[in-house]
């Protein structure tokens, strides 16, 4: 039962992410990505990480994808969009893609597949457990990333202010 559920969720997430990359219409790409997020959230629930699953849905499906959709809604839907980029941009894209590939392979390499994560700790994904880990073991990285977010927010506000003055 659990295995069937896992394999169907995994299949849905992989197929929908492939469809998202190859679909011509940007609107459908967004919707396929949404389906992918939901199946990943389902996988989180299967690992007893209810908190992560719900936050995943709220942040990615509920906020970020709405903003994506917001931009795509203003595109004309009858004409397909072709994106032409310069050689330099394409080269950088290939380089970063390879870098991501490298990071993922090293992560896979160092993973111990012998232990079943669902068996290790039943409470691992609960909000209280997660909070304790974040504020005890990973306090400094957590605070540093929050400062990073704050600086990004302040930067965006300043950029917008500048535009208003130029007019």
């Amino acid at each position: 039962m659990t295995e069937v559920l896992f394999y169907s969720l995994a299949a849905i997430s992989i197929i929908s992410s492939i469809l998202m990359i190859f679909h011509k219409n940007a609107m459908y790409s967004v919707l396929y990505l949404l389906i992918c997020f939901f199946s990943v959230a389902g996988l989180f629930v299967m690992l007893n990480a209810q908190f992560l699953a719900v936050v995943h849905v709220i942040v990615y499906a509920g906020a970020i994808m709405v903003l994506f959709l917001y931009v795509i809604m203003f595109l004309n839907m009858s004409t397909p969009i072709t994106i032409r980029k310069s050689k330099l941009v394409m080269g950088i894209a290939v380089f970063t893609g390879l870098l991501l590939c490298f990071v993922l392979t090293t992560a896979l390499w160092s993973t111990d597949f012998g232990s079943n994560p669902a068996v290790v700790d039943q409470n691992i994904g609960l909000a209280s457990t997660l909070g304790k880990v974040l504020f005890k073991e990973f306090l400094i990285p957590f605070e540093v990333s929050s400062v990073l977010f704050l600086s990004a927010m302040v930067g965006i506000v300043i950029f917008n202010k500048k535009d208003v003055k130029d007019e």
């Binding site: 949404l34 209810q50 908190f51 719900v54 936050v55 849905v57 709220i58 499906a61 509920g62 906020a63 709405v66 959709l69 609960l126 909000a127």
Partner: peptide
Amino acid sequence: NVGILYIMGVLSLGVY
């Protein structure tokens, strides 16, 4: 055990 967050999640999907 994350009931209130579930409600926030469903709410944020309503806009779709």
